[in-house]
Protein backbone atom coordinates (compact mmCIF):
# COMPACT_ATOMS: atom_id res chain seq x y z
CA UNK A 1 0.00 0.00 0.00
CA UNK A 2 2.80 2.35 0.97
CA UNK A 3 4.64 1.48 -2.23
CA UNK A 4 1.52 1.97 -4.31
CA UNK A 5 1.27 5.42 -2.83
CA UNK A 6 4.93 6.15 -3.57
CA UNK A 7 4.56 5.14 -7.23
CA UNK A 8 1.30 7.05 -7.53
CA UNK A 9 2.73 10.20 -5.97
CA UNK A 10 5.82 10.20 -8.17
CA UNK A 11 3.77 9.66 -11.30
CA UNK A 12 1.18 12.30 -10.40
CA UNK A 13 3.82 14.89 -9.51
CA UNK A 14 5.62 14.25 -12.79
CA UNK A 15 2.42 15.20 -14.66
CA UNK A 16 2.95 18.65 -13.26
CA UNK A 17 6.72 18.80 -13.61
CA UNK A 18 6.18 18.30 -17.32
CA UNK A 19 3.55 20.39 -19.13
CA UNK A 20 1.25 17.39 -19.60
CA UNK A 21 -0.75 17.99 -16.43
CA UNK A 22 -1.32 21.68 -17.13
CA UNK A 23 -2.21 21.05 -20.77
CA UNK A 24 -4.71 18.34 -19.89
CA UNK A 25 -6.33 20.30 -17.06
CA UNK A 26 -6.30 23.53 -19.06
CA UNK A 27 -7.75 22.08 -22.26
CA UNK A 28 -10.38 20.20 -20.30
CA UNK A 29 -11.37 23.35 -18.41
CA UNK A 30 -11.49 25.38 -21.63
CA UNK A 31 -13.55 22.98 -23.73
CA UNK A 32 -15.87 21.84 -20.96
CA UNK A 33 -16.29 25.51 -20.04
CA UNK A 34 -17.33 26.41 -23.56
CA UNK A 35 -19.67 23.42 -23.66
CA UNK A 36 -21.10 24.34 -20.29
CA UNK A 37 -21.67 27.99 -21.20
CA UNK A 38 -23.28 27.07 -24.52
CA UNK A 39 -25.65 24.49 -23.06
CA UNK A 40 -26.46 26.70 -20.07
CA UNK A 41 -27.38 29.62 -22.32
CA UNK A 42 -29.37 27.28 -24.58
CA UNK A 43 -31.25 25.92 -21.58
CA UNK A 44 -31.96 29.42 -20.28
CA UNK A 45 -33.42 30.45 -23.64
CA UNK A 46 -35.51 27.30 -23.83
CA UNK A 47 -37.00 27.89 -20.40
CA UNK A 48 -37.97 31.44 -21.30
CA UNK A 49 -39.83 30.53 -24.47
CA UNK A 50 -40.31 26.74 -24.51
CA UNK A 51 -42.63 26.73 -27.51
CA UNK A 52 -40.06 28.43 -29.74
CA UNK A 53 -37.74 25.47 -29.13
CA UNK A 54 -40.40 22.82 -29.62
CA UNK A 55 -41.06 22.12 -25.94
CA UNK A 56 -44.59 21.98 -24.60
CA UNK A 57 -43.65 23.05 -21.09
CA UNK A 58 -40.54 24.11 -19.21
CA UNK A 59 -37.96 21.58 -20.41
CA UNK A 60 -36.74 19.08 -17.87
CA UNK A 61 -33.44 20.35 -16.44
CA UNK A 62 -31.82 16.98 -15.86
CA UNK A 63 -32.76 15.64 -19.25
CA UNK A 64 -31.98 18.64 -21.43
CA UNK A 65 -29.01 20.26 -19.72
CA UNK A 66 -27.40 18.13 -17.06
CA UNK A 67 -27.23 14.70 -18.65
CA UNK A 68 -26.08 15.78 -22.14
CA UNK A 69 -23.47 18.08 -20.64
CA UNK A 70 -22.07 15.41 -18.33
CA UNK A 71 -21.92 12.83 -21.09
CA UNK A 72 -20.17 15.48 -23.16
CA UNK A 73 -17.59 15.83 -20.37
CA UNK A 74 -17.13 12.09 -20.36
CA UNK A 75 -16.54 12.09 -24.10
CA UNK A 76 -14.13 14.98 -23.70
CA UNK A 77 -12.12 12.70 -21.45
CA UNK A 78 -12.15 10.24 -24.32
CA UNK A 79 -10.29 12.81 -26.42
CA UNK A 80 -7.72 14.02 -23.91
CA UNK A 81 -7.51 10.91 -21.75
CA UNK A 82 -4.89 9.30 -24.02
CA UNK A 83 -2.56 12.15 -23.02
CA UNK A 84 -2.95 11.04 -19.43
CA UNK A 85 -2.53 7.30 -19.93
CA UNK A 86 -0.16 6.94 -22.87
CA UNK A 87 2.95 7.69 -20.85
CA UNK A 88 2.18 5.56 -17.83
CA UNK A 89 4.00 2.38 -18.80
CA UNK A 90 5.07 2.97 -22.41
CA UNK A 91 7.35 5.80 -21.37
CA UNK A 92 9.00 3.72 -18.67
CA UNK A 93 9.80 1.10 -21.26
CA UNK A 94 10.94 3.60 -23.84
CA UNK A 95 13.27 5.48 -21.49
CA UNK A 96 14.53 2.30 -19.89
CA UNK A 97 13.34 3.33 -16.44
CA UNK A 98 11.24 0.17 -16.46
CA UNK A 99 14.47 -1.60 -15.59
CA UNK A 100 14.61 0.40 -12.37
CA UNK A 101 10.90 0.16 -11.69
CA UNK A 102 10.90 -3.60 -12.12
CA UNK A 103 14.09 -4.27 -10.16
CA UNK A 104 13.10 -2.17 -7.18
CA UNK A 105 11.27 -4.08 -4.45
CA UNK A 106 7.82 -3.44 -5.92
CA UNK A 107 5.05 -5.91 -6.58
CA UNK A 108 3.40 -5.81 -10.00
CA UNK A 109 0.08 -4.83 -8.49
CA UNK A 110 1.71 -1.95 -6.65
CA UNK A 111 3.00 -0.67 -9.98
CA UNK A 112 -0.34 -1.08 -11.75
CA UNK A 113 -2.42 0.47 -8.97
CA UNK A 114 0.09 3.23 -8.43
CA UNK A 115 0.06 4.18 -12.09
CA UNK A 116 -3.72 3.94 -12.29
CA UNK A 117 -3.99 5.99 -9.12
CA UNK A 118 -1.93 8.77 -10.70
CA UNK A 119 -4.22 8.76 -13.76
CA UNK A 120 -7.23 8.90 -11.45
CA UNK A 121 -5.55 11.85 -9.75
CA UNK A 122 -5.52 13.68 -13.06
CA UNK A 123 -9.15 12.71 -13.46
CA UNK A 124 -9.90 14.25 -10.08
CA UNK A 125 -8.31 17.47 -11.25
CA UNK A 126 -10.73 17.44 -14.18
CA UNK A 127 -13.57 16.60 -11.83
CA UNK A 128 -12.67 19.66 -9.79
CA UNK A 129 -13.46 21.68 -12.92
CA UNK A 130 -16.79 19.89 -13.37
CA UNK A 131 -17.57 20.43 -9.69
CA UNK A 132 -17.17 24.17 -10.13
CA UNK A 133 -19.59 24.03 -13.03
CA UNK A 134 -22.04 22.03 -10.93
CA UNK A 135 -21.71 24.64 -8.19
CA UNK A 136 -22.71 27.28 -10.73
CA UNK A 137 -25.75 25.21 -11.69
CA UNK A 138 -26.71 24.77 -8.05
CA UNK A 139 -26.46 28.51 -7.49
CA UNK A 140 -28.48 29.62 -10.52
CA UNK A 141 -30.99 26.88 -11.27
CA UNK A 142 -33.92 26.69 -8.84
CA UNK A 143 -35.07 23.41 -7.29
CA UNK A 144 -32.02 21.37 -8.14
CA UNK A 145 -31.09 18.61 -5.75
CA UNK A 146 -27.39 18.91 -4.82
CA UNK A 147 -27.33 15.10 -4.68
CA UNK A 148 -28.26 14.92 -8.37
CA UNK A 149 -25.33 17.18 -9.21
CA UNK A 150 -23.05 15.12 -7.00
CA UNK A 151 -24.13 11.92 -8.76
CA UNK A 152 -23.44 13.70 -12.02
CA UNK A 153 -19.83 14.30 -11.07
CA UNK A 154 -19.49 10.72 -9.87
CA UNK A 155 -20.89 9.53 -13.20
CA UNK A 156 -18.31 11.41 -15.21
CA UNK A 157 -15.62 10.19 -12.85
CA UNK A 158 -16.65 6.56 -13.29
CA UNK A 159 -16.81 6.95 -17.04
CA UNK A 160 -13.38 8.56 -17.10
CA UNK A 161 -11.95 5.92 -14.78
CA UNK A 162 -13.14 3.24 -17.18
CA UNK A 163 -11.53 5.01 -20.13
CA UNK A 164 -8.27 5.38 -18.23
CA UNK A 165 -8.10 1.72 -17.24
CA UNK A 166 -8.27 0.80 -20.91
CA UNK A 167 -5.62 3.40 -21.69
CA UNK A 168 -3.32 1.99 -19.01
CA UNK A 169 -3.64 -1.42 -20.59
CA UNK A 170 -2.74 -0.12 -24.05
CA UNK A 171 0.22 1.71 -22.52
CA UNK A 172 1.41 -1.56 -20.99
CA UNK A 173 1.57 -3.34 -24.34
CA UNK A 174 3.32 -0.58 -26.26
CA UNK A 175 6.74 0.95 -26.06
CA UNK A 176 6.05 4.20 -27.88
CA UNK A 177 3.87 6.90 -26.39
CA UNK A 178 2.45 8.01 -29.72
CA UNK A 179 1.42 4.44 -30.53
CA UNK A 180 -0.10 4.09 -27.08
CA UNK A 181 -2.02 7.35 -27.32
CA UNK A 182 -3.29 6.76 -30.83
CA UNK A 183 -4.28 3.16 -30.20
CA UNK A 184 -6.07 4.14 -26.99
CA UNK A 185 -8.03 6.85 -28.72
CA UNK A 186 -8.87 4.54 -31.62
CA UNK A 187 -10.12 1.84 -29.28
CA UNK A 188 -12.28 4.26 -27.31
CA UNK A 189 -13.63 5.96 -30.38
CA UNK A 190 -14.56 2.74 -32.16
CA UNK A 191 -16.36 1.43 -29.08
CA UNK A 192 -18.18 4.74 -28.82
CA UNK A 193 -19.24 4.79 -32.49
CA UNK A 194 -20.30 1.15 -32.36
CA UNK A 195 -22.37 2.04 -29.32
CA UNK A 196 -24.16 4.79 -31.20
CA UNK A 197 -24.79 2.57 -34.20
CA UNK A 198 -26.03 -0.28 -32.04
CA UNK A 199 -29.04 1.78 -30.98
CA UNK A 200 -30.48 1.15 -34.43
CA UNK A 201 -30.03 -2.61 -34.25
CA UNK A 202 -33.36 -4.43 -34.65
CA UNK A 203 -34.58 -6.66 -31.81
CA UNK A 204 -34.20 -9.78 -33.92
CA UNK A 205 -32.81 -10.69 -37.30
CA UNK A 206 -34.66 -12.25 -40.19
CA UNK A 207 -33.26 -15.66 -41.03
CA UNK A 208 -33.75 -17.73 -44.20
CA UNK A 209 -36.75 -20.05 -43.82
CA UNK A 210 -34.99 -23.17 -45.06
CA UNK A 211 -32.63 -23.17 -42.02
CA UNK A 212 -33.14 -25.96 -39.58
CA UNK A 213 -34.75 -24.97 -36.25
CA UNK A 214 -31.58 -25.44 -34.20
CA UNK A 215 -29.58 -23.31 -36.61
CA UNK A 216 -32.20 -20.59 -36.31
CA UNK A 217 -32.13 -20.84 -32.56
CA UNK A 218 -28.32 -20.71 -32.48
CA UNK A 219 -28.20 -17.79 -34.88
CA UNK A 220 -30.76 -15.75 -33.00
CA UNK A 221 -29.11 -16.57 -29.70
CA UNK A 222 -25.79 -15.41 -31.11
CA UNK A 223 -27.40 -12.27 -32.41
CA UNK A 224 -29.06 -11.48 -29.10
CA UNK A 225 -25.72 -11.78 -27.32
CA UNK A 226 -24.06 -9.58 -29.91
CA UNK A 227 -26.88 -7.07 -29.61
CA UNK A 228 -26.73 -6.89 -25.84
CA UNK A 229 -22.98 -6.50 -25.96
CA UNK A 230 -23.21 -3.79 -28.58
CA UNK A 231 -25.84 -1.88 -26.67
CA UNK A 232 -24.59 -2.42 -23.14
CA UNK A 233 -20.80 -2.35 -23.46
CA UNK A 234 -20.20 1.17 -24.78
CA UNK A 235 -19.08 3.43 -22.00
CA UNK A 236 -21.45 6.33 -22.50
CA UNK A 237 -24.65 4.26 -22.50
CA UNK A 238 -24.62 3.68 -18.77
CA UNK A 239 -23.76 7.27 -18.06
CA UNK A 240 -26.85 8.79 -19.66
CA UNK A 241 -29.34 7.72 -17.01
CA UNK A 242 -26.91 8.04 -14.15
CA UNK A 243 -26.20 11.61 -15.12
CA UNK A 244 -29.86 12.43 -14.62
CA UNK A 245 -29.57 11.30 -11.05
CA UNK A 246 -31.02 7.85 -11.64
CA UNK A 247 -28.49 5.81 -9.78
CA UNK A 248 -28.60 2.09 -10.51
CA UNK A 249 -26.23 -0.30 -8.77
CA UNK A 250 -25.70 -2.25 -11.97
CA UNK A 251 -24.49 0.86 -13.79
CA UNK A 252 -21.93 1.57 -11.09
CA UNK A 253 -20.96 -2.09 -11.05
CA UNK A 254 -20.56 -1.95 -14.80
CA UNK A 255 -17.94 0.79 -14.57
CA UNK A 256 -16.14 -0.80 -11.65
CA UNK A 257 -15.98 -4.17 -13.38
CA UNK A 258 -14.95 -2.58 -16.65
CA UNK A 259 -12.00 -0.88 -14.95
CA UNK A 260 -11.13 -3.98 -12.96
CA UNK A 261 -11.07 -6.01 -16.16
CA UNK A 262 -8.49 -3.79 -17.84
CA UNK A 263 -6.40 -3.45 -14.68
CA UNK A 264 -6.36 -7.21 -14.45
CA UNK A 265 -5.17 -7.48 -18.05
CA UNK A 266 -2.47 -4.88 -17.38
CA UNK A 267 -1.28 -6.90 -14.40
CA UNK A 268 -1.13 -9.96 -16.62
CA UNK A 269 0.93 -8.09 -19.18
CA UNK A 270 3.46 -7.15 -16.50
CA UNK A 271 3.60 -10.76 -15.41
CA UNK A 272 4.08 -12.14 -18.93
CA UNK A 273 7.35 -10.26 -18.95
CA UNK A 274 8.44 -13.06 -16.67
CA UNK A 275 6.75 -15.85 -18.62
CA UNK A 276 8.54 -14.91 -21.79
CA UNK A 277 11.44 -17.04 -20.80
Amino acid sequence: MRNTWAVCKREFVSYFITPVGYVVAGVFALISGIGFAASFIGYARATQSPSAYGYTGVPDFEETLLSPFLVFCGLLIMFIGPLVTMRLLAEEKNRGTAELLLTHPLRNREIVFGKYGAALGMLLVMMAVVSIQMAVVWYFVPHVEPAVLGFGVITVFLMGAAFLSMGLFVSSITRNQVTAGTATFGLWFVSYVLGSLSRDLPDAIALPENWSPWAVRAASFGYSIFRSLATELPLDVHAQEMAQGVLQPEDILYYVLFSAFWLFLTLRVLETRLWRA
Binding site: R10, S14, I17, T18, R95, G96, T97, A98, E99, L100, T103
Partner: peptide
Protein backbone atom coordinates in the same frame (compact mmCIF):
# COMPACT_ATOMS: atom_id res chain seq x y z
CA UNK B 1 21.64 -0.84 -15.10
CA UNK B 2 23.97 -0.28 -18.01
CA UNK B 3 22.10 2.61 -19.58
CA UNK B 4 21.55 4.31 -16.20
CA UNK B 5 17.86 4.95 -16.74
CA UNK B 6 16.57 7.79 -14.56
CA UNK B 7 13.49 9.97 -14.38
CA UNK B 8 15.07 12.93 -16.07
CA UNK B 9 12.43 15.44 -15.07
Amino acid sequence: PESVPLYRE
